[in-house]
Structure formats: structure tokens, C-alpha cells
Simulated scan of single mutants.
Amino acid sequence: MMKLLVTGGAGFIGSHVLEKLHAMVDRQVVVFDNLTSGSPDNVLPGMELVRGDVRDTDSLESLFASHDFDAVIHLAAQTLVPTSVADPVMDLQVNLEGILHILECCRTYHVHHVLFSSSAAVYGDNPHVPLVETERLMPSSPYGITKMTTEQYLRVYHELYGLDATVFRFANVYGERQGEKGEGGVVSIFCKLLAMGKAITVYGDGRQTRDFVYAGDIADAIIQALPLKGFHTFNVSTGKETSINDLIRCFEDAIGHSADVHYTEARTGDILRSVLSHDALKQALGIVPAMELPEGIQKTYDWYNRQEKH
């Protein structure tokens, strides 16, 4: 029996990880979440929910002392780039102080493996697409800086203390339950507006590209990596560039009619092209994200549509 701690497990990506873990009989799961953006409804039967904040060292000490964890899946984070720009100190406290509290508890209580949710934000606006893990890191936001710095802490904790660590750099993640208590990504924003019969706004001409990866595929990658030893860094992505205009066409197929689209000026600092290579993930774990975008958009839109009708 493997005993897992999932920080931020009640949130968007966490909910997909918990779904996958719930189907596995040899996993015992504890969720640690402050529920600011997560929901207790995402914590499934048989899983323990501990309400707490990664900035609170006392609650983390108590948690680790009372459990014998084999691994930590660390998803708890301040995840919004605009919030990090508006309040970089808070971003640092959650994202950097939080991971250090987790790492120190792992060191003290001999937890073997930390799996960390990083981001394509560590690359910044790099035109060398598709981006590979060895590209120079040049984040353009405080959020990206905290993710990049956490990766370095994990590498050093591996080298100094022997902690196994796996870093996942997520592309543009989408799926059910995204942004329930916040703005979310472009897919969740479009889902909400279209489910309400409203127009959607595109900043720029819609030809800017992103690499949209389904949250269930993210969860699969994390779980497949649990047995890994050493220090690893993987992009989790489809390796496919999709323009915002192509994304809208997927939505039009999902809703069965044309969308009301308003184009406006591009936002300063928005990246024009973004796509990540997943070759390293495929080579190390033998997996690639499987969800095709049209199917994933249909699943995600249908979920939002059901929420809107309730």
C-alpha cells in the first residue's frame, strides 16, 4: 500500500488526480487543501481531507508526524499569472515558502519522492518551439519565477539529501472543474460564456497558438511517475500547436452552432506561439497525452453546460 499526500488535491488538477487514484486499490490518499479554490466535493470517499495552508508550518508538521507518507504530489499553489504580477509577495509566500515547508517535512519524516506541478511559464516568451526541457528558462512573471525556483530547490534537495523529485511542466491545461472559484484558463472562460449563451472575446487576431492538454492526461502522467527514482523534468503536453481560432471551431462543433466572437486589441505581454515537446515524457514513461482536442472540448463544455443548467 502506497500512502500519498496530495496538496491542493481539492482543486482543478487535483480533482483529476484523485479520480485516477480512487480507481487504484493499492493507494491510500490524504488531501491537504485550504479550499480557497478547491472544493471538498472533489475529495472522494475513502480519502482523508485535512484543511490547512502550506504556509502554516505547524499544521504541516502535525500532518507529516501523524502519517507515514511514501510520496507527496504537490499541487497547492497560487496559479494565476495576473495575481502574481499584482501581488508578488503573496505569490512567493504560497509558491516558494510553501514548497520549502513541504520539503523540510519530507526531509524530517523521510518521505521518498516529491512530484511537482510546474508550468510552461518557466520558459517565458521563447520562439524556439516546440520547447524542450533543456531550453534556457526566462520567466516573464513572478509566477514563472517561483515555479523555476522551486524546480531548482527540488534539484538541490535531491543532490544534498537524496530526495527523489519529478518536475512536470504543464502546457495549457483544461478540463472539467477548471476555474470554479476563479477566472481559469481560456477554455474554462469560453465554456462558461458559451454555456450562458454569451459572446466570447479574443485578444488579437486569434492566430496566437497554445498547446492545450487535458487534465486527465496530466493526472495519468503524475501517477505513472510515482515509482521514478532520481531527479526528472518533463513537459506534459500534446506537442501540437492550436490557434485560438481553431479552438473556437472546436467549441462551435461542441455547441452545434456558430459562436458570437468579438476580436479586440492584443494584450501586452501575451505570448504569440506556445507548444512544448513531450518526447522526454514518452521516452521515460512510455506515455503521451491521449485526449484529442475536439473530444476534450466536448467533454469539458458538456460539464460546464450541466453546471449552468443546475
Rank of each mutant, 00 (worst) to 15 (best):
R273Q: 04
V261A: 01
S277M: 09
D260R: 11
V261T: 07
A284E: 02
D260A: 14
L285R: 01
A290H: 09
V288Y: 06
E265S: 12
A266T: 08
G296T: 08
G256H: 14
V288R: 13
H262E: 12
R273I: 00
A290I: 03
H278A: 08
D279S: 09
P289H: 00
V275P: 05
Q283S: 15
E295K: 11
E265C: 01
S274E: 00
T264A: 08
G256M: 05
A266V: 01
T264P: 06
A259M: 09
M291D: 00
T264R: 10
R267G: 12
H257F: 10
V288L: 11
Y263W: 06
D260I: 03
G296Y: 00
P294M: 03
A280H: 11
V288Q: 15
A284C: 07
M291I: 11
S277E: 00
R267T: 11
G256Q: 15
L281S: 00
S258D: 15
Q283N: 13
V261P: 02
L293R: 09
E265I: 04
A266M: 11
Q283R: 15
E295Y: 12
V261G: 11
K282D: 11
G296C: 09
G256W: 00
M291L: 02
S277L: 02
D260W: 04
Y263T: 10
G269A: 10
E292M: 07
D279A: 15
R273L: 02
